[in-house]
Design a protein around this nucleic acid. Structure first.
Length: 805
DNA sequence: GCCCTGGAACTAGAT
DNA sequence: CGATCTAGTTCCAGG
């Protein structure tokens, strides 16, 4: 784990310790169970959250409306408590047919320091879809809509508590926080979307919450790690010498009812005390309806807001909303594709809801990826223009499979780019770029604290949208970190993705009142000026495996390669400790700024009987490392058995182009233009004889986490560590690759199908998956493989869970 | 004059 | 606790 995102993990670890070092007596058991439908209410969308401390005397019960209750341990008395509760990742309840219930591993002891061992709470989450009206229908529906098999919601449906309130009411006791393994960009569960989702709170609770938090920023726990900031925590962000857009958004939400009933925003709340902004990035850019939805006309935009937004703005008569289960609880699995993308038209998914990019014949696809770097602008700066594509132009998004003549709206927002499910990025917002060079109409809106651009998808344009109007605004870290409930750290959290989402109304006959929500996310975009200038970037590698003897020539293409750049191969143990590291010999004569030619070093153990996964990275010096990339050493017996094994030609180093959420299909794209930055990379499939990569390499980062890579279906535990730094992508530079068969200077895999030919089957993939045994494999078979693999790996991953980092 | 862009100074926080 | 490093933020200038 490198220095970059790693710090955040350390933060998480710190919190983890903080939480469990609190001497609260027996650890509570957090359970969330389905609540039976309450007559007259749409309450199937909630769950009862129980905290069940062994010692009930130490708990208090928070009874909410809707007849729900939350029992919580009494807050510890110590003054410096930190909110936050960490639980091991949930797992399917064992020994029974999966019914939507996840539970964590049993309460167990966790060593938090050399001398202290505390008991870890367990959690059981029963997931209930907000999609469903009544609980009894849930299972059947999701079983159907989810494509069979299990379904899950990585959320707890909490009927009442504002996460902020919830969190701060019981500091140090209940509030979920990012898991010990959370990444720096982890929002925990308090993403803007989630945190602002309207949750019914009785007025007195609101008042109390406001008194407790809104008026006294100092009451908010210090941000993770107790980081200092320019502005004293005792001082409202409004003391900044200029207004804060982030605060505008938040205040906006309150005013506009976008995220919470207005009753949650008393006039003296902190947000509302912020002076009027003078910068143009403020309210004036927001549509009138957002500023004052009461006065705003009905949707006149060609890109109407989803109904869910309306629903949220309206007084929460529905009475129920949900809190996402902290990603910490889900970080062990990426199950986005297990979710049905079908929603009621009046209950569209929030922005942090995982969605597939493809469903049935429909697919939302990024035809042209954005550049890997885009310097975001601050509020104090002028716009830095729209996100561009490589080598020119702008990103292009297309909705495939849609034959209706009715235009749709494409939503764009800035999402996170860490290794967990996509959610709105707390430190970046989409920014609508206008000007004569912008040809695409767009409409701004705000949904639960996240700015959106609504861009029309017109049949006349073949449902293709040119994203030439989307810039990225950077919010000051200090502003965001001061925000109530914000748990993310902005420092070095500079990677984003453009997230595209659309809602297709389904045919009234087949799915009355249902819409299909599809989402796709771009590859990661590095938004900081500095990182873009200094960090080496590996974009592609010519070889992904070779004999343990090494010695083969390996070409790395990318950018920011320096004469001092080194290429290192390393292996970490399951405990994360570096077990082996070897520097590759660099052929400086044949290397340049965007190409490195190295010799693969021999592996440390020539007698291995199975392929060994290691990782490699480029280092430009301390703290200037590229992301790590997977490399596999093959036992002698594998050597040259199958040229495909060792000559994949080019690997995609950042997954495929479509990236809303992980894909469950095991197809591999064949159209270079559909792939990474048009480079035509193949998605590297899992080998049939998959062996878990070493836990600390960013295999996950490079493959598993990418929204649409096939690896996403795998447990993320196999790659729990983030890379030393974000993986970045650079323009390919001309390089003398031509002598490498199957690899052209553009990084394309030669001989691949082009255009039109999508979803090249697995046998087209040059990696292990393409071996004859895997030909004609079906999705079900692949799923079976996955399941078996996961099962076989669970024991080891749970061991890893138990190991303190 | 405005927008976009690149560079770099300044500064707070981290080491 | 000071020195140094790192990274976030702001400012400036040119196209």
């Amino acid at each position: 784990m490198g220095a970059a995102p790693g710090s955040g993990w350390e933060e998480g670890e710190f919190e983890f310790k903080l939480v469990f070092e609190e001497d609260q007596g027996p650890s509570p058991v957090l359970t969330a169970e389905p609540e039976s439908a309450v007559p007259g209410e749409e309450s199937a969308e909630c769950a009862l959250l129980h905290l069940e401390p062994s010692n009930s005397s130490s708990s208090s019960s928070l009874v909410t409306d809707n007849h729900h209750s939350i029992s919580i341990p009494s807050p510890p008395s110590s003054a410096n408590q930190r909110a936050g509760m960490h639980s091991p990742p949930p797992r399917r309840a064992p020994n029974r047919e999966f019914s939507g219930t996840y539970e964590s591993l049993p309460a167990r002891s966790v060593q938090v320091s050399e001398s202290r061992v505390v008991e870890c709470p367990s959690i059981q989450i029963t997931t209930i879809s907000p999609e469903d009206d009544l609980a009894p229908s849930i299972s059947s529906y999701w079983d159907t809509g989810g494509g069979g098999g299990g379904w899950d919601r990585e959320r707890l449906y909490l009927p009442l508590l504002d996460p902020f309130t919830y969190r701060d009411r019981c500091p140090g006791s209940l509030s979920p926080s990012p898991s010990p393994g959370s990444s720096p960009s982890s929002r925990g569960w308090l993403s803007p979307a989630s945190s602002c989702d309207s949750l019914l709170v009785e007025e007195e609770e609101l008042t109390e919450a406001t008194n407790n938090f809104g008026l006294s920023p100092s009451s908010r726990p210090t941000s993770p790690g107790g980081k200092k900031r320019r502005n004293s925590p005792l001082v409202s962000p409004c003391t900044s010498r200029r207004g804060s857009y982030s605060e505008e958004l938040q205040g906006f939400n309150l005013e506009g009812g976008d995220s919470a009933p207005q009753s949650q925003a008393p006039p003296n709340s902190c947000e509302l005390s912020i002076p009027q902004k003078t910068r143009k990035t403020s309210l004036e850019q927001l549509s009138p309806r957002e500023v004052d939805p009461e006065q705003a006309p009905a949707h006149s935009s060609p890109c109407p807001l989803p109904d869910s937004q309306q629903a949220r703005r309206a007084p929460t008569s529905l009475g129920m909303d949900y809190l996402p289960v902290p990603p910490a609880l889900a970080w062990g699995r990426t199950r986005a594709s297990a979710h049905s993308p079908l929603f009621r038209s009046n209950a569209l998914p929030p922005l942090d809801w995982p969605l597939p990019s493809q469903f049935d014949q429909y697919e939302l696809r990024i035809e042209v990826q954005p550049r890997p770097h885009h310097r975001a602008h601050y509020e104090t700066e002028g716009s830095r223009g729209a996100v561009k594509a490589t080598p020119s132009g702008h990103p292009v998004v297309k909705l495939c499979g849609y034959a209706e003549r009715k235009p749709l709206s494409l939503q764009v927002f800035v999402g996170t780019a860490d290794d967990r499910s996509i959610r709105p990025h707390p430190f970046y917002q989409i920014h609508r770029v206008t000007g004569k060079m912008v040809g695409t109409a767009s409409h701004e809106s705000v949904q639960t604290g996240t700015k959106l651009l609504d861009i029309p998808l017109n049949p006349e344009n073949n449902m293709t949208a040119l994203i030439d109007c989307a810039g990225i605004l950077k919010l000051r870290n200090s502003d965001i970190e001061l925000r109530k409930g914000e748990t993310d750290v902005g420092r070095k959290n500079t990677r984003v993705r453009l997230v595209f989402r659309t809602h297709l109304p389904l045919t009234p006959v087949a799915q009355p009142g249902r819409v299909l929500a599809l989402q796709v996310a771009s590859l990661a975009i590095e938004c900081s000026q500095r990182s873009a200038q200094e960090l080496p970037v590996i974009e592609s590698i010519s070889l992904t495996s070779c004999s343990v003897e090494g010695g083969e020539e390996l070409l790395l293409s990318g950018s920011n390669f320096l004469p001092i750049s080194r290429v290192l191969f390393m292996e970490r143990g399951t405990d994360g400790k570096l077990q082996w590291e070897e520097e590759a010999h660099v052929d400086r004569d044949n290397s340049n700024e965007c190409l490195m030619c190295v010799r693969v070093p021999a592996y440390s153990d020539m007698s291995v009987g199975l392929p060994v996964s290691v990782s490699l990275y480029v280092s430009n010096g301390k703290r200037k490392r590229s992301s790590t990339h997977c490399f596999k050493y093959l036992p002698m017996m594998f050597k040259e058995d199958d040229p495909l094994l060792s000559r994949p030609s080019v690997l995609p180093l950042d997954g495929g182009s479509v990236g809303g959420q992980p894909r469950m299909d095991y197809h591999v794209r064949g159209d270079p233009m559909e792939d990474d930055r048009g480079l035509g990379f193949h998605l590297p499939p899992y080998p049939s004889t998959y062996s878990p990569p070493c836990p600390t390499m960013s295999y996950h980062e490079e493959y598993c986490s990418k929204p649409d890579t096939v690896y996403s279906a795998y447990p993320q535990e196999v790659c729990p560590s983030p890379p030393s730094h974000p993986s970045l992508y650079q323009d390919i530079c001309p390089a003398p690759y031509s002598h490498y068969e199957g690899w052209d200077p553009q990084g394309r895999v030669l001989g691949m199908g082009h255009g039109g030919e999508r979803d090249v089957k697995i046998q087209d993939c040059p990696l292990e998956f393409t071996s004859s045994s895997m030909h004609h494999i079906t999705f079900e078979e692949v799923s079976e493989f996955i399941g078996e693999d996961i099962q076989s790996y669970q024991s080891s991953s749970s061991q890893m869970d138990n190991q303190p980092n």
